[in-house]
């Protein structure tokens, strides 16, 4: 059995228990049946692999999220103050930024982190570049500085 199948099984069991919260024999039997059925369908769909179960990330992800939360709060303050500005003056920008090779998983984390922070949205991801639409030009400069990319890269390896 692949390690990914094992981790998915564990995830499904935790998900079931957290939702159910009932500890009765019948519910346990039904739960076991459900987990097996989902595993069967998932393997037929071929969705159990290192992409859907990124186990290599688990070690470093908490530190990354803590850093992302800080970024999130900062950019939220910026966007909210723009929204409540009496007189709207915007400098939106659409820029393609070069980046070095990242794994598919790395790309997803990078692109979603950019989209998650208000003020920037990833519009395209290719092998060696990422296109970003920003509410304000300064956000583009922040991304170009590469601080986030470096962190994702550290996570990815």
């Amino acid at each position: 059995m692949k390690i990914q199948t094992l981790s998915l099984t564990l995830l499904l069991i935790i998900f079931w228990l957290l939702n159910s919260g009932l500890f009765k024999p019948l519910i346990f039997i039904l739960g076991a049946f459900s987990v097996v059925l989902v595993l069967f369908i998932s393997s037929r769909m071929k969705v159990i692999d290192e992409e859907s179960q990124p186990l290599h990330l688990t070690k470093n992800i908490p530190a990354y999220y803590a850093w992302l939360l800080k970024e999130l709060v900062m950019s939220n303050i910026k966007v909210v103050s723009t929204i409540w500005q009496g007189h709207l003056q915007l400098q939106p920008a659409l820029t393609t930024i070069k980046m070095d090779h990242l794994s598919d998983m790395g790309k997803v984390i990078y692109a979603n982190s950019i989209s998650l922070t208000p003020g920037t949205v990833t519009t395209d991801v290719t092998e060696n570049s990422i296109t970003v639409h920003a509410l304000d030009k300064s956000s583009i400069t922040d991304i170009q500085s590469g601080a986030m990319e470096a962190r994702v890269r550290k996570l990815d390896n």
Binding site: N76, P92, L94, L116, T117, P118, V121, H133, A134, L135
Partner: peptide
């Protein structure tokens, strides 16, 4: 596109 940024807040 700018509205999108507001939505993500």
């Amino acid at each position: 596109f700018t509205r999108m940024h507001a939505a993500s807040v």
